[in-house]
């Protein structure tokens, strides 16, 4: 039972982390109709920036803020230099172009920071555990990830649903040409949205960096998960991304923890220990395939385009 609570919280934490990554991806996808494989590179950059700036300034929060600003700037620069030219192109062109960007960023990071990974050291007030319920201890840092991500998710919801810029973003998602025709500076809007998405990816990256390490290629596997999330949720839908990321995070984490044990009920021990890890890695893809077969446009399809 204790383990179950802890794993559920871990799943929640991982899901929320995925949401930060998926939110930017789904916005860019929904509004600019751009498949951005390089989103994982921004995630990686966020981690490296944070590790560098916290070491440089000697201050955790300060380093994090600087890292977020740096990722935002890099994101906006990437949009102005490269992405802007890819809008309106075939999805295939996006895949090829941003695949090129992944290679570029991986090598750039290797050139600047070297091939070895970097650690992001936590301050002592985060590096403790907290007693949630009598007898239930949980890592303070993971709990703070949950809190920060939830706060970001709520403010994102507020910005998108309740402010003027959010209204423009939603309008952009349902009809790009129209809001351009109505005199909105779409170029600027696109750059801002892309930059914001980059900063969110960077935030996810730096939070993960303290649990694992910042390393080259760290964004690639999680990027695929983020894509799974936005596909399950329905492209362009923030709400869909939120539900889907929690679903994926929980299924993945809880599945990994308990599926081998569940299988032991039906299979022999050796068969279960072989099939368990494989099946739990496959589980989310299985879920995605089933959802897509049942609902080809995801759980929360954005308004018809």
């Amino acid at each position: 039972m204790l383990l179950f609570i802890e794993q559920t919280l871990n799943g929640l934490q991982f899901g929320l982390l995925l949401f930060l990554l998926a939110a930017g991806l789904t916005l860019v996808f929904g509004i600019m109709d751009l498949v951005n494989l390089a989103h994982g590179s921004l995630y990686m950059l966020g981690a490296y920036f944070a590790a560098t700036f916290t070491a440089l300034t000697g201050h955790f929060i300060g380093g994090v803020v600087l890292a977020l600003m740096a990722t935002l700037l890099v994101g906006m620069a990437v949009e102005v230099i490269a992405m802007r030219r890819l809008y309106g192109r075939d999805h295939l062109d996006h895949v090829l172009g941003t695949f090129g960007l992944i290679l570029f960023f991986n090598e750039l990071v290797r050139l600047i920071w070297g091939p070895a990974g970097m650690n992001l050291t936590l301050p002592s007030w985060l590096n403790t555990s907290i007693e949630l319920m009598p007898g239930v201890h949980y890592s303070m840092y993971r709990l703070s990830i949950i809190i920060v991500s939830l706060a970001v998710a709520i403010s994102l919801y507020f910005v998108v649903m309740r402010t003027r810029i959010g209204m423009l973003i939603r309008a952009g998602a349902s009809n790009r040409e129209m809001i351009g025709a109505l005199g909105i500076n779409i170029k600027l809007l696109f750059t801002l949205v892309f930059g914001a998405g980059a900063a969110l990816a960077g935030l996810a990256g730096l939070m993960q960096a303290a649990i694992l390490t910042a390393q080259i290629g760290m964004g690639e596997n999680i990027l695929i998960l983020a894509f799974v999330v936005i596909i399950i949720g329905g492209i362009g839908s923030i709400r869909g991304a939120f539900v889907a990321s929690l679903l994926v995070g929980l299924i993945d984490t809880v599945g990994r923890a308990f599926l081998p044990d569940v299988l032991k009920l039906f299979l022999s021990n050796s068969a279960a220990s072989t099939a368990g890890p494989a099946l739990s890695s496959m589980l989310i893809y299985l879920v995605m395939a089933v959802i897509l077969v049942a609902r080809p446009e995801g759980l929360f399809p954005a308004a018809n385009k």
Binding site: V95, I224, I231, Y285, M288, A289, L292, P296
Partner: peptide, 23 residues
């Protein structure tokens, strides 16, 4: 499925078979 959804569902199936290989 169509479009991007097709891209991603084929990716999902390939990932499944990848993990079969790993196991």
């Amino acid at each position: 499925t169509r479009g991007v959804y097709f891209i991603m569902i084929t990716l999902a199936f390939a990932q499944m078979i990848y993990y079969v290989g790993v196991s």
